[in-house]
Amino acid sequence: MKYLQYILYGVIIGHWLLNVKGRLCTGKVEDRYAVVGMHSSKNEYIFVGRSTEKSKALDATNHIEENSMCYIGICYDLCDPGDRDEFESKSICPYMEAIDVKVIEEARDML
């Protein structure tokens, strides 16, 4: 009888631990990374897009860095509280420079 009691306790505690692990260690988070373009001479930001994969977000950021005339690419990890606060504090501009429309659209397609 004592063995049955230990098995039951083990099942209950194991189930609880697995639920706690699931809450603490998340898998892939939908749209975790946000890519923003910062204007190099004005205090303006444009929203490029979001991605679940970090590699895609960094590729889009690097594409903006290398090909844009007016914008600097920034990648935010929205699961990091500091990055999320900084991203939410940015005022997103609804328009972008005509020179860089093609580059920004290409970056959006990469996400």
Score class of each variant (00 low, 15 high):
residue 93 C to D: 06
residue 66 E to P: 03
residue 93 C to V: 03
residue 7 I to N: 06
residue 2 K to Q: 06
residue 104 I to M: 13
residue 10 G to K: 03
residue 43 N to R: 02
residue 41 S to R: 00
residue 79 C to K: 13
residue 43 N to T: 00
residue 37 G to F: 02
residue 52 T to R: 03
residue 66 E to K: 12
residue 54 K to P: 10
residue 79 C to T: 15
residue 7 I to L: 14
residue 36 V to I: 05
residue 90 K to R: 14
residue 15 H to R: 05
residue 79 C to M: 15
residue 62 N to D: 11
residue 108 R to I: 02
residue 74 I to L: 15
residue 111 L to Y: 02
residue 72 I to A: 09
residue 59 D to V: 07
residue 68 S to N: 07
residue 13 I to W: 01
residue 26 T to S: 14
residue 47 F to M: 00
residue 26 T to E: 12
residue 101 V to P: 09
residue 24 L to M: 13
residue 92 I to Y: 04
residue 2 K to M: 07
residue 92 I to T: 14
residue 37 G to S: 03
residue 49 G to E: 00
residue 64 I to A: 08
residue 5 Q to H: 04
residue 22 G to L: 09
residue 82 G to C: 13
residue 68 S to Y: 08
residue 25 C to F: 11
residue 51 S to T: 02
residue 12 I to T: 05
residue 61 T to E: 15
residue 38 M to P: 01
residue 57 A to F: 03
residue 110 M to F: 08
residue 49 G to H: 00
residue 66 E to L: 09
residue 61 T to A: 13
residue 24 L to R: 05
residue 24 L to N: 11
residue 34 A to H: 02
residue 22 G to I: 06
residue 80 D to T: 15
residue 31 D to A: 10
residue 48 V to L: 02
residue 95 Y to R: 14
residue 95 Y to C: 14
residue 79 C to A: 12
residue 35 V to E: 00
residue 16 W to M: 15
residue 88 E to H: 11
residue 25 C to Y: 12
residue 4 L to S: 11
residue 58 L to Q: 08
residue 17 L to S: 06
residue 10 G to T: 13
residue 92 I to R: 09
residue 72 I to C: 09
residue 15 H to I: 10
residue 79 C to P: 05
residue 92 I to L: 07
residue 28 K to W: 07
residue 78 L to K: 10
residue 102 K to R: 15
residue 8 L to E: 06
residue 110 M to K: 11
residue 81 P to K: 14
residue 58 L to W: 08
residue 31 D to W: 02
residue 6 Y to E: 14
residue 41 S to E: 00
residue 5 Q to S: 10
residue 45 Y to D: 03
residue 40 S to F: 00
residue 14 G to P: 00
residue 37 G to A: 05
residue 81 P to Q: 07
residue 59 D to C: 07
residue 67 N to D: 10
residue 110 M to A: 11
residue 27 G to F: 02
residue 55 S to P: 04
residue 35 V to H: 00
residue 78 L to G: 14
residue 55 S to G: 02
residue 90 K to E: 06
residue 54 K to F: 02
residue 63 H to V: 05
residue 58 L to V: 11
residue 39 H to R: 01
residue 76 Y to F: 15
residue 94 P to R: 12
residue 70 C to L: 03
residue 48 V to S: 05
residue 101 V to K: 15
residue 58 L to F: 07
residue 58 L to G: 02
residue 6 Y to C: 06
residue 90 K to A: 13
residue 90 K to I: 13
